[in-house]
Design a protein around this nucleic acid. Structure first.
Lengths: 205, 205
DNA sequence: GCGTTACGGTAACATCCGTTACGGTAGAAG
DNA sequence: CTTCTACCGTAACGGATGTTACCGTAACGC
């Protein structure tokens, strides 16, 4: 029983080691040995936990999705208004601190790895479509009078902007400080008419 | 003299081979042998043209920047208005056809490779800052009444959106067809108040 | 026409990779 | 306490990688 828990916990430790190597050494140095060293074990444990390197990467990718999904759902649940939920959910996707910056680098590494890995690209597309539907749902809730087509277009713009800012900031943190990232996000929300009601958008209440 | 031309031309051939391998096989399979095979030569020629693999990648990265810069400057020069120039320049950064989609994948591969390559990350930052200044200049020309701070914020939003859309479409072309990409860009330009003056400013209804 | 030189292909080198097989060991079962 | 089993570290293997050394060959100067 404790064995099963240990097994699962070690899978998470190894996946987080994958993230560390991906963030600090890049995809080219993402070897089984490097992951084992980052996790404080040997390649033997890694290869007993996962059938091969590809499965290890896939598990790390899925865990990354699961972690961000949990964080996003908590943000969404604790938001006061749909507009605030939309902003909070998009904001967590930026690269404004070492934590999120590392996640952005890892995210990019998985994307680059997916070019030659059918499982990774499938996982990426599935997760991205879920993410897109979430932002569309939040956008529609924040602007109930919009037509679905416009909702989808704006949601795509917001998703792309958040992802783009994260990529830019991850690669050049000094050039894109946290304040500028958030200012760009808020300016976009305001321009779309999704800013805080007090600042311009008329609310139904 | 023809020797020098051949030398330079072969450097370009090899760099384009780097792009091909990066786009079709990904960063993990970007080996000197794969590049040589894509270029139709052997590793001997590659290693005589460049001192090592890192220099080969750096040259390919620089050539990619040079090619896109030339294309962007031509678009900018032939645009009728600053607003049209801004839109054209941003539009070429999307991933709307096989050509630009491949470029987006290559761009992402270089970014992932830059994590463990000091020269590549330096080159990336320099090119990105040049790119950012260009978009800021075009934005300021399209909206002369804006304050510099707002220009910078909107330009960042536009750059991030274009880059984000390209990344999304490169990884999942079916989910992000060309029309949706352009619609998102136009919607953003309109929302910021940078749409075509002839079309006026349209509301979300 | 001939020697020289530069160019590029071939092959080898050491190293590193993913993966596999084996052995020791710690903990559970009785 | 003994036995056994599951776990994991060690070490090896075949293959691939970046890089180097060597050698044939084709172009250029005289």
């Amino acid at each position: 029983m404790s064995r099963l828990a240990d097994r699962s916990a070690q899978g998470e430790v190894l996946s987080r080691a994958v993230w560390d190597v991906l963030a600090e050494q890049g995809l080219e140095r993402l070897t089984v040995r490097a992951v084992a060293a980052a996790a404080g074990c040997t390649t033997g444990l890694v290869m007993h936990r996962f059938p091969n390197r590809q499965a290890l990467l896939l598990h790390a990718r899925q865990l990354l999705h699961e972690v961000t999904r949990a964080r996003v759902e908590e943000l969404e649940a604790s938001a006061m208004t749909p507009g605030a939920a939309l902003r909070a959910v998009l904001r967590q996707g930026l690269a404004t601190d070492p934590q999120t910056r590392q996640e952005a680098v890892v995210w990019m590494g998985f994307l680059a790895a997916a070019v030659s890995d059918e499982d990774l690209i499938t996982e990426h597309r599935r997760n991205n479509r879920v993410w897109r539907e979430r932002v569309e749902r939040l956008t529609a809730a924040a602007a109930p009078e919009w037509e679905p087509r416009h909702v989808a277009t704006v949601a795509l713009g917001l998703i792309a902007m958040a992802e783009g800012i994260a990529a830019l900031a991850a690669a050049d943190p000094d050039a894109f400080p946290a304040e500028e990232q958030e200012a760009a996000l808020d300016a976009a929300l305001n321009a779309y008419g999704l800013g805080f009601p007090a600042e311009g958008r008329e609310g139904p209440d």
